[in-house]
Amino acid sequence: MKEINDLILPDDVKYTKSHEWAKISGDIVTIGLNDYAQDQLGEIVFVELPEAGDTFSKGDEFGSVESVKAVSEIYIPISGEIVEINEDLEDAPELVNESCYDNGWLIKVKPEDVSELNDLMDKDEYLDMLKG
């Protein structure tokens, strides 16, 4: 497993306590798992995602990721409607390990209230949380 200092944590995304990231682009927020989460989970073998059109409230469980011997729930950091899911993950769940901020993204959401993103952490706040 990676040391905290080796984690890749981009500056241009927001972080949650449960190790998701969120990034706004236009009026759509893309959500994925961060480097810490994918590293802790180990080799991911399956990603369960909702369907486009489903709506969730901030903090809801919207899916799960599985390694060989563990399942972790994933939580949505912002309320809204799912407009797209990453269908490549069905055949290639390893994308979450290999490219968690790019090709391994999970869902795109049309948020109800963009300001909810302000509740999330920036890189430094997140690092402080990890270091406890």
Partner: peptide, 9 residues
């Protein structure tokens, strides 16, 4: 040792 990751993916 067997490749359990490949078996599950």
């Amino acid at each position: 040792r067997l490749d359990e990751v490949a078996a599950a993916r």
